[in-house]
Design a protein around this nucleic acid. Structure first.
Lengths: 119, 119
DNA sequence: GTAGAACTTGACACCGATGTGAGATTCAAG
DNA sequence: CTTGAATCTCACATCGGTGTCAAGTTCTAC
């Protein structure tokens, strides 16, 4: 599929999709004229990339991580090196703390909202 | 207490504490010589501010929100306007989606880590 | 008094994914 | 062909909380 459709289906801008390519996160075939041509699994891949970005991971970490993720079609996945596992564990713990913070903030907002509703 | 102690106790840099003041988020008395002098509740306040920043709220929203939060000492709290409630509800929903994303990313990392451990 | 730590204000830099616009090329349908 | 939509590359801007450095002032303990 072409970039416009991929953007539409994932909710990610064309700009970002091209950026992902420069970062080595997303490959695409090219038509004879040079237009990108994505395979179907690109949809899931882009969504995962977007989630990882949202979780605060940087391009480089995502690039290292992607080959180690199990493909939705059960394709072969690389094994993370000990060094990478160490990094990912740190990220995982950071994400855990982030979730805890977010839950507290959500509770704070909920209370303010509820207080206003009840008044 | 002075800014150094507040920074130490909250884990927030002095730079950020001064920035919070310019944004109208954190008030401080001044010594005759001009040094900031914070009351004890500033500690909790700074921690809440930090959490809200981490949740993606901008200074302006936090500034509007803070007076509506119940003080830890049960002091008087303002009531959010309908307009603010609308904004905060949107933020709340955004935070909810962010949490869901984070959980998925955490699960992804966990699986990669586990796969590496089991190999 | 005096030395050194702590604090003050002000300015500049940064990060890095994403927005945006220009100008050129390709694709697809009539 | 032709024409308009879609895509290409390249370059520059943005956002906003935080880091950092400089030069000057205040505080505190001796």
């Amino acid at each position: 599929m072409r970039i416009g459709e991929l953007a539409r289906r994932t909710g990610v801008s064309e700009r970002s999709l091209r950026y992902y390519e420069t970062q080595g996160l997303l490959a695409a075939e090219r038509t004879p004229g040079g237009h990108r041509d994505y395979p179907e699994p690109a949809v899931d891949r882009v969504i995962r990339i977007q989630e990882l970005y949202a979780a605060g991971l940087h391009s480089e970490k995502i690039r290292q991580l992607l080959p180690c993720m199990r493909d939705q079609d059960g394709g072969p996945s690389a094994i993370a090196t000990p060094r990478l596992v160490e990094d990912l564990t740190a990220e995982r713990d950071r994400i855990d703390r982030m979730i805890a913070d977010l839950v507290r903030s959500r509770d704070t907002l909920d209370e303010v909202i509820r207080t206003a509703r009840d008044s």
